[in-house]
Design a protein around this nucleic acid. Structure first.
Lengths: 185, 185
DNA sequence: GTACCTGCAAACTCTTTGCAATCTG
DNA sequence: CAGATTGCAAAGAGTTTGCAGGTAC
């Protein structure tokens, strides 16, 4: 499975269903997918799915592994990675890259399609929706003869939060020009 | 073989000025940036800049390092990474992530702003331009109070090329269901 | 029972770091 | 000259792989 970005055309669920509410549906979808692909329905796979759907926001594979471990599960890192691939493949999870070369994941099902706004100073990530992206996608599909099934749009910039961590550091640097060269996040 | 080291990874660059023409300007821009930030104008930095502006399309740090090495330069990997950071910082080079967790770079100056269309089967990358993205950016800036200075929009899907490598492999898999589960790149 | 899956740890890949030597300003 | 920058190699972080044992079907 090559690229695994966030699906744009997920189930057209409007608004967010609650975590618990959504989970039964989600589990069924995984079951179906595993059936369809003749993969086994192991407890590990469902444990990982459940852990993900209890979380909010973005996470990385290591954090998920540690969380599972903390909760008494003894899934291995290898299984976490393997299962994440499966979940991305069946569009229950989306893979995201925010410029720091750490792969992040987020649950997808039951959540509105959205894109990301990343503060390069403090790392804060906001989400936004814009219907024009779907139209750009349609145009690109037609012009280039692709069948597009996912997209990722990230904006990078600086937020205006008073407590933006990076901005404070930058201010300090100004008094201390040796450190002026910003580190990439 | 999915997304990353595809031989077809080539350009399809939209609206470019010639390489040599742009380079003098680009060198000046780097010089200015180094001055402004009190960084040293080392030969390595200019050698790397030049190598990048002689290339077309996307490349990764390792490929750039090997290329420089081949050409007789003896810059180290560390310097390549360090310099890429500087060039990204002064907007002569852009960092890109196409879903295979290998960081790609491309030159930016003198090239029209564009976004990417990635074939998840064969790894081909096409480029397109759409003015609506700038408008979405404006709106997001206003609504969220960000100062945005970069974006990345990637569409992922399947191309319609007759020789799309991945599609052939997928067809083979269908006859041989054991291999149905696609491998991550 | 079979072969898919898992856990474990080692291997791998990409990137960063530490340090002595070198070169810019 | 001072100290920023380099090359080198080793370390680090994140992810993948190989293999023996476990387990879904």
């Amino acid at each position: 499975m090559p690229v695994s970005p966030s699906p744009t055309d997920g189930p057209a669920h409007t608004g967010h269903s609650s975590n618990t509410e959504a989970y039964a549906e989600v589990e069924d979808l995984l079951r179906e997918y595993l059936d369809r692909n003749k993969l086994r329905k192991t407890p590990e796979r469902f444990a990982i799915l459940e852990a993900i759907y209890q979380k909010d926001g973005h996470f990385d594979a290591e954090a998920l592994y540690l969380e599972l471990k903390n909760d008494g599960s003894k899934v291995s890192r290898a299984t976490v990675y393997n299962t994440l691939d499966i979940l991305v493949d069946c569009r229950l999870v989306a893979k995201q890259y925010f410029g720091d070369s750490i792969t992040k994941y987020e649950k997808v099902y039951g959540y509105r399609q959205h894109d990301h706004l990343v503060c390069t100073e403090c790392g804060k990530i906001l989400e936004f929706c814009d219907p024009r992206i779907a139209r750009i996608q349609d145009m690109v599909e037609q012009v280039y003869g692709f069948r597009i099934d996912a997209h990722a749009l990230n904006f990078y910039g600086e937020c205006t939060d008073a407590d933006c961590a990076g901005r404070k550091a930058a201010a300090k640097d100004q008094a201390n020009p040796q450190n002026a060269q910003k580190q990439p996040s």
